[in-house]
Simulated assay, not measured.
Amino acid sequence: MASTTLKATKLSDLQIPLEDVVKATNNFHDDNIIGRGGLGLAYKGQLQRSGNFIKISALRLDRKQGEGEVEFWTEISVLSDLNHTNLVSIIGFCDEKDEKVIVTTYAAKGSLKEHLRNPNLTWTQRLQICLRGGSNINSSTILLDKNWEAKLSGFKISIKQLLNRMDRVILSEPIGLKGYMEPEFQKIKGVTHKSDIYSFGVVLFEILCGRRAYIENGANRFLSTLVKYHSGKKTLEEIIYPDIRNQMSTGSLRIYVELAYSCINDDRANRPNMDKILEELEKALKLQLRRENIVRLFS
């Protein structure tokens, strides 16, 4: 009973008035949207706390869908209990007037999505982001701090903490964005942990090619379709982001590309598990660092 009371008190301390959140996000203005997920939109903003302004991310539950209540409270509970260098920190939440919003810290450099074509984001840094980002669903929910280190955000965190999907098929709409959804979902209308692996594979190609998973008016709208086309023709190098191509060690690139393709395999059974993914990314990074050491030695 004491722990329950303590928890309730802890959560009450995190409550933020809706008025403050609205002001911080300029009334949830479209210009402040930084991500669009299955449960709602994420907005950046400036929240005034104790006389100072801090950068925030506000995850606004889409009440039109009539779901997400459990995920909302679970997310708050998990984030308020966890303190991890690779997770965003919770600032508070709003639960007023049919609005449910989770407010977290917003990393200094914004989301990975904003830096896919940033020439200052080196290949080594991109590999490190992949390792720290884990299997998070998309480049909008991987935030980058001032040192380019990845911070995870989004409702996905709590679901991964509490639901073991290793051998289960969840018959619901996937929490994701257009471009990250595996082809199999359209056939069987269900997701498993291998669905997450597919999404992460798309993120790997976003990082490699310097372009988003889906471009609304592009000739090649879906990145996954584009990379599979180039795989068949063995011409992937044509769409690698040119500003990082000359930085790569041959071995690092080979391991990375083979891994990324295995993640977006149309057959779920042939996709690797997360342990294998991290193992291969570690190898790719090790080879890349070895190349950089050699370059420094002879420069």
Rank of each mutant, 00 (worst) to 15 (best):
Y241S: 00
L112D: 02
N220P: 00
Q161S: 12
G232Q: 06
Q65G: 11
C130H: 00
R63W: 08
V101I: 15
R63Y: 10
L297N: 07
N118V: 03
A42H: 01
I102F: 03
D62L: 12
T74S: 15
T4R: 10
E237S: 11
E69L: 13
G45F: 06
L223M: 11
L253M: 10
L6G: 00
I207Q: 05
D95A: 15
L162Q: 10
L204M: 15
E238G: 02
E67S: 13
I56H: 03
W73L: 04
S172A: 15
M274G: 00
I90Q: 13
I157K: 04
S139F: 14
V227L: 04
I244E: 00
Y241W: 00
Q161H: 09
G232H: 02
R126N: 00
H193I: 14
L223E: 02
N217Q: 03
G45P: 08
L171P: 14
G154C: 08
I54A: 02
L143Y: 02
V88R: 01
R245Q: 10
E114P: 02
S158W: 04
E258I: 01
N220S: 07
R36G: 01
L11H: 15
V88C: 06
R212W: 01
L11F: 15
V295L: 03
S111D: 02
L39R: 04
I197P: 05
L59C: 03
I197H: 04
M166P: 01
R221W: 06
L11D: 09
I129S: 00
T5L: 12
Y256E: 04
K113Q: 13
G45S: 05
K286A: 12
L6M: 05
H230I: 01
R60A: 15
I197N: 09
E292P: 06
R254H: 05
L131T: 02
L278G: 03
Q48P: 01
L163N: 15
Y261R: 01
I188H: 13
D243K: 12
K7I: 06
K55H: 11
D81T: 03
N52W: 09
G218T: 05
C94I: 06
T5A: 07
K10F: 08
P242C: 04
L61Q: 12
I91D: 11
E216V: 12
I91H: 14
V227K: 02
N118M: 03
I244K: 00
A58H: 09
L121M: 09
K234D: 09
T124R: 06
I157L: 12
W73N: 06
K55M: 03
V227F: 04
K194S: 15
R165H: 11
G68C: 13
S77H: 12
L297M: 08
